[in-house]
């Protein structure tokens, strides 16, 4: 079974994808991930997820898929005029 491996490098950071590996079950996948991806203390926490359990957006439709965010500049703080002298905003 193919597992995708995610590692939290240090406390306070998010888990990030580092690669994949094969294992018969999740427990072995965790042990293998420790040996393959954290030989130099690269992490304090590991997630393994069966690759088949991941649903991914398709790169072919990415323009349409992400388009709704493109015309909403008012979601960014830089959209707004802040009057001279206003503090803490």
């Amino acid at each position: 079974m193919l597992f995708e491996v995610f590692i939290r490098p240090r406390r306070g950071l998010s888990h990030a994808h580092v690669g994949s590996l094969h294992a018969p079950d999740a427990e072995m996948a965790l042990r293998n991930a420790r040996d393959v991806y954290t030989r130099r203390q690269e992490g304090v926490s590991i997630w393994v997820v069966p690759a088949t359990e991941i649903t991914a957006s398709s790169p072919d439709e990415k323009d349409a898929f992400f388009a709704p965010a493109a015309d909403k500049v008012y979601r960014h703080p830089t959209f707004y005029d802040v009057p001279e002298g206003a503090a803490h905003i």
Binding site: L2, S20, L21, H22, V36, R39
Partner: peptide, 25 residues
């Protein structure tokens, strides 16, 4: 020992990269 274990690890990173191209281990 640590070096030879690294070589095994490097092989695995690379097999994982090859598998993303649609070929199986």
């Amino acid at each position: 020992l640590a070096k030879v274990q690294d070589e095994a690890g490097h092989g695995l990173y690379l097999y994982a990269a090859a598998e993303t191209l649609g070929i199986s281990r």
